[in-house]
C-alpha cells in the first residue's frame, strides 16, 4: 500500500535460514574437520610424489576432486528455496556457470593462512603441490583468492549466503527466465545485507564481496582456457579418464 515493492522481512528471514541450513548440510567438510591441527601438511616425500606425477595424472586427480566438490554444490543449489521451481534449462545454466565458482568460494574455509595451504587429498597442500598441472599462474591466482576471502573471516552463514548469491546470477547467458532468477538473486542479496548488518560487519563488506564475484568469474574463465589447452594436447585422456560430470560441466 505504501508503494514499497521489496519483499517482506519475514520472507527474507525465511530464505536466509533456508540457505544457511542448506550450506551447512552440503558443505563436504565441517569447519571442525578443517582445523589445520587435525591434518598434516604435505610432507617432502608426498610433495615429490605429486610433483613427479605426469601432467595427465595430476589433471585427472584434480578433475576428480573438483567433481566431488561440485556434487555438493549441486545439492546446495537443490535445497535453496526457489531453485527447483526454475525451469530445468535455467537450473543447468546456473550450475554449469556457477558450480565451480562456489567451489572456489567454499575453498576459503579450507585455507590455512599460516602457511598458505589448502585442504586437498586429505592433507594441507601449498601451490607447489600442483606444479605438475602446468598451470602455475592459475594456481597462484586461486590461492590468492582463497587468501583474500579467508582474510575477511566470514562466518558459515555469511559464506552460505554469499555462495547462493554467486550461484543465482541473473546475467548468465542462455537463461530462459531471467526475471525469476533476478528476483531470487535480489532476495539473496537482501538476506546477505541483513545478516552482515546483524553481525555488525564493517560497512563496505558487501561491496567487497560483490567485487569478489568478478575475480571468481575470471578464475573460472582461466580454468576453461587451461582445460582447452590441455585437451588440445591430450584429447583422448579427457575423453576416457575424466569424470563424466566434469566433462558435462566444462566440456563445452
Amino acid at each position: 500500500s505504501n508503494g514499497d515493492t521489496s519483499p517482506p522481512d519475514s520472507d527474507i528471514e525465511h530464505l536466509s535460514e533456508n540457505i544457511c541450513k542448506s550450506h551447512l548440510e552440503t558443505c563436504q567438510y565441517l569447519r571442525e574437520e578443517l582445523q589445520p591441527s587435525n591434518w598434516q601438511t604435505v610432507l617432502q616425500t608426498d610433495l615429490d610424489t605429486y610433483q613427479k606425477k605426469s601432467q595427465e595424472d595430476m589433471w585427472q586427480l584434480c578433475a576428480i576432486k573438483v567433481t566431488e566438490a561440485v556434487q555438493y554444490v549441486v545439492e546446495f543449489a537443490k535445497r535453496i528455496d526457489g531453485f527447483m521451481e526454475l525451469c530445468q534449462n535455467d537450473q543447468i545454466v546456473l550450475l554449469k556457470a556457477g558450480s565451480l565458482e562456489v567451489v572456489f568460494v567454499r575453498m576459503c574455509r579450507a585455507y590455512n593462512s599460516q602457511n598458505n595451504t589448502v585442504y586437498f587429498d586429505s592433507k594441507f597442500a601449498g601451490p607447489e603441490v600442483f606444479k605438475a598441472l602446468g598451470c602455475d599462474d592459475l594456481i597462484s591466482s586461486v590461492f590468492e583468492f582463497a587468501k583474500s576471502l579467508n582474510s575477511l573471516q566470514l562466518t558459515e552463514d555469511e559464506i552460505g549466503l554469499f555462495s547462493a548469491y554467486v550461484l543465482m546470477s541473473a546475467d548468465r547467458c542462455w537463461l530462459q527466465e531471467k526475471t525469476r532468477v533476478e528476483k531470487l538473486q535480489q532476495k539473496i542479496k537482501l538476506a546477505l545485507q541483513h545478516l552482515l548488518q546483524k553481525d555488525q560487519r564493517d560497512e563496505g563488506i558487501l561491496t567487497k564481496l560483490v567485487c569478489k564475484v568478478s575475480t571468481v568469474r575470471m578464475l573460472c574463465r582461466r580454468h576453461m582456457e587451461k582445460l582447452s589447452a590441455f585437451r588440445a594436447l591430450y584429447p583422448e585422456m579427457v575423453h576416457t579418464r575424466f569424470p563424466p560430470l566434469y566433462k558435462e560441466l566444462f566440456g563445452s
Binding site: E25, T26, Q28, E68, Q71, Y72, V74, E75, K78, M84, Q88, Q91, I92, L95, K96, P244, L245, E248, L249, S252
Partner: peptide, 20 residues
C-alpha cells in the same frame, strides 16, 4: 537433455551428501 544427462539425474535424485 542427452548432453547433460548426469546433471539431470543429480537434479532429479533426492540424494543427500551422505549418498554422494
Amino acid at each position: 537433455k542427452e548432453k547433460h544427462k548426469i546433471l539431470h539425474r543429480l537434479l532429479q535424485n533426492s540424494s543427500s551428501p551422505v549418498d554422494l
